[in-house]
Simulated assay, not measured.
Amino acid sequence: MSGRRLCFALDLDEDPDLIAQYRRWHRAGGVPEGVIRAIRQAGIDAMEIWLTGNRLFMVMEVAEGFDLAAKTQADASDPDVRAWEELMWRFQRPLPWAEPGEKWVAAERIFDLGQQPGK
């Protein structure tokens, strides 16, 4: 891995119909092209979102020099990203420990097999 991995968590509303809609929005081709372009231009090399129950986990592989604050600022001025985020908030709920206005909460890595002794 040339860059680094960032992981985040967020909850969805516990309504099965809303979760199904959220899943449909995230199928291949479902996310607007402008949003995909903004993700790639920010230096995000790979992104996956995982779901269990109503909890989401986002895993990003980012290029060296990736700046999350710069990405956040660029998103705030991008009409495609703003419209997408507004739509997604219909489905999403902040984690109970999220700061006011915080959406995706960064996860802390507490275990790495590669750092464990033995082979």
Rank of each mutant, 00 (worst) to 15 (best):
R23F: 03
D45N: 07
V31N: 03
D80N: 09
V62S: 05
T72Y: 01
A46I: 00
L6G: 05
T72D: 04
E99H: 05
D78W: 00
S2T: 14
Q73N: 05
W25I: 05
D78Y: 02
D78E: 08
A38F: 00
G43R: 06
V105Y: 01
T52F: 12
G114D: 14
L51H: 11
A83H: 05
F91S: 06
V35K: 02
C7E: 10
F57D: 02
I39A: 00
K103M: 04
M47C: 02
V81D: 01
V31W: 02
E64A: 15
T52G: 10
E64G: 10
A98N: 14
V59R: 12
F111P: 01
E14C: 08
R82K: 10
W25S: 05
V81Y: 05
A42M: 05
G34L: 06
A69C: 04
F111V: 14
P94S: 09
E99M: 06
W50F: 14
M47W: 08
R90H: 12
E64K: 11
R109I: 01
Q73V: 07
A63E: 15
V105F: 02
W104D: 04
I44W: 07
E108H: 06
R5G: 03
K71A: 12
A69S: 13
G29F: 03
A83Y: 05
R82D: 00
Q116S: 09
L87M: 13
E33P: 03
A38K: 02
Q41I: 02
R55F: 09
W104T: 04
V62H: 11
K103V: 02
R4P: 00
L95V: 07
E102L: 07
M88D: 02
G65W: 13
A83V: 06
A28H: 11
F91H: 12
M60D: 06
D11P: 03
M60S: 09
W89F: 06
M58K: 15
E14K: 13
K119A: 12
W50G: 03
A76Y: 01
W104L: 09
E64D: 15
D15K: 04
C7P: 01
G30K: 07
A20M: 08
A98I: 08
G3W: 12
G43Q: 08
R109F: 02
D75Q: 03
L51I: 11
F91Y: 15
S77I: 08
R90S: 12
F91Q: 01
R37C: 00
L87I: 05
A20V: 06
P32V: 03
A63F: 10
F111Y: 15
L56P: 13
D17I: 09
Q115C: 08
K71C: 08
G3A: 11
K71R: 14
L18D: 10
A83K: 09
V62T: 15
W50P: 01
S2M: 11
G29A: 08
K71F: 12
R27V: 12
M88E: 08
I19F: 04
N54T: 13
W50Y: 15
I19G: 08
D67Y: 09
R55C: 13
E85A: 06
M60R: 10
F91P: 01
I110D: 03
L51S: 11
L68T: 05
M58R: 15
A20Y: 09
F57H: 11
E108P: 00
M60L: 15
A9P: 06
A74T: 01
T72L: 07
L10T: 02
Q92E: 14
